[in-house]
Design a protein around this nucleic acid. Structure first.
Length: 196
DNA sequence: TGAATGATCACG
DNA sequence: GTGATCATTCAT
C-alpha cells in the first residue's frame, strides 16, 4: 500500500498507461475515502500524436500536459462531462494518460450518490462516469497527485493479463494501439475491444 | 440513433 | 467576433 512517487509518472506516457493498470486511485471527498482500481487507460503524447490535445502545441487548456509529471489534467468533454488525465513525461514534453475506467473498491455508497443511484457496475465504467463518481471537475485541473486529497497507490495487486487496442472516440490517431485494459474485467468501459 | 450542452480552436 | 468540433452519456 504505497503512494506512487513522481518518478513513476515522469516516463513515456505509453509506459505509464500500461503500468497504471491495477493501481488504485484514491480521493478524499467530504470525509469519505473513495478508492477504485484502474482497469482501462489511454496514452496521449504531443506533436507526434494527432489524437492528442497537445498535437498543435501548448494552449491555455493543455498547458498542464507540458508541465510537471504527476499532476491532474481535467477537461470538459461534449459540454457536460469531465475527463481525467495524469500528466506524464518531463517538463516541456507533452504527455498524459486518460483514466477511462475504474473498479470501485471503497466509498461505493458515496459514488452511487454522486452518480444518481446508477447500478454498481456503471459507477465508473467510462471516463465521464468515473469523474462524476469521484467528484472530479475542472476545478481539480492541475492538482498534484502527491497531495493529500487525491493520489494513486500500489496495493500489490498485479493484473493477470493486459490487452491493448486502438483508442476510443477520436477522429485522428485512431490507428495507434495506445489503449490498455484488463480483458474480462466487467468494469472496463463499453466500446471496441482488441478485435474480440 | 440522436439529444443534451459548452469550452476550445482556427480563422478573419 | 463566429462556427465547427469534440478523448461522452443517457434515454429512445
Amino acid at each position: 500500500m504505497s503512494k506512487l512517487p513522481r518518478s513513476f509518472y515522469a516516463r513515456a506516457a505509453e509506459d505509464v498507461a500500461r503500468d497504471l493498470l491495477g493501481k488504485v486511485l484514491v480521493r478524499m471527498f467530504e470525509g469519505h475515502m473513495l478508492r477504485g482500481r484502474i482497469v482501462e487507460t489511454e496514452s496521449y503524447t504531443g506533436e507526434s500524436d494527432p489524437g492528442s490535445h497537445a498535437f498543435r502545441g501548448p494552449s491555455p487548456r493543455n498547458r498542464v500536459m507540458f508541465g510537471e509529471a504527476g499532476h491532474l489534467y481535467v477537461y470538459l468533454s461534449y459540454g457536460m462531462h469531465s475527463c481525467m488525465n495524469v500528466v506524464t513525461d518531463s517538463v516541456g514534453v507533452a504527455g498524459a494518460v486518460l483514466i477511462r475506467a475504474l473498479e470501485p473498491l471503497e466509498g461505493v455508497a458515496a459514488m452511487a450518490t454522486l452518480r444518481g443511484g446508477r447500478p454498481f457496475v456503471e459507477l465508473c465504467n467510462g471516463p465521464g462516469k468515473l469523474c462524476q463518481a469521484f467528484a472530479i471537475t475542472r476545478s481539480q485541473n492541475g492538482m498534484d497527485l502527491e497531495s493529500t486529497e487525491i493520489w494513486i497507490e500500489d496495493d500489490g495487486w498485479i493484473p493477470l493479463e493486459i490487452t491493448c487496442s486502438t483508442r476510443i472516440g477520436l477522429s485522428a490517431g485512431t490507428d495507434l494501439p495506445l489503449r490498455f485494459f484488463l480483458p474480462d474485467n466487467i468494469f472496463v468501459s463499453k466500446g471496441k475491444t482488441s478485435g474480440g
